[in-house]
């Protein structure tokens, strides 16, 4: 095995460990938010590590370019995706696990007096607005 292959396998192994952590977390953690936390990490880092590792086993120029674009997009969108789901869960009143310290959330609720997170109060407009700025 060449040095490059060894590096590739180490990266793939790291990615698989991150994935396994998310899998165990998804089964074991007590509420949606902890599960979303585990998945957010795995989605970004796990895919990035596995993809970089895989492309090193067959490093043609075309593959390297595609993998680089995929990794950048993955890191940018995966975490945002988890945040979107978590934010929707907060806004729709999904319960936190018993024992969660929510002082700041309650304060924020009182301060905003029912204004939902990140969006203006009042009826929802038909189209989505200001997605980029509100994440």
């Amino acid at each position: 095995m060449s040095v490059l292959t060894v590096i590739a396998y180490v990266l793939i192994l790291a990615g698989v460990v991150v994935f396994a952590g998310a899998g165990v977390g998804l089964l074991k953690f007590r509420d949606t938010y902890m599960r979303a936390s585990a998945v957010g990490t795995a989605a970004g880092l796990g895919i990035a590590l596995v993809t970089i590792g895989a492309v090193l086993t067959m490093p043609t120029t075309a593959n390297l370019v595609k993998a680089a674009v995929a990794v950048v997009l993955q890191l940018a969108t995966a975490a945002v995706g988890s945040t979107i789901i978590a934010r929707a869960a907060v806004n729709s009143g999904h319960a936190f696990a018993p024992g969660t310290s929510l002082i700041d959330l309650d304060e924020a609720d009182a301060k905003l007096a029912g204004m939902p997170l990140t969006e203006e109060s009042g009826p929802r407009p038909s189209g989505e607005t200001s997605e980029g700025s509100s994440v």
Binding site: Y33, A36, S37, G40, A79, S82, T83, A86, R87, V90, N91, A108, L112, M115, L117, T118, S134, V135
Partner: peptide, 8 residues
């Protein structure tokens, strides 16, 4: 850690 969203 997990971001839940922006306030305001």
């Amino acid at each position: 850690t997990l971001t839940l969203g922006q306030l305001g």
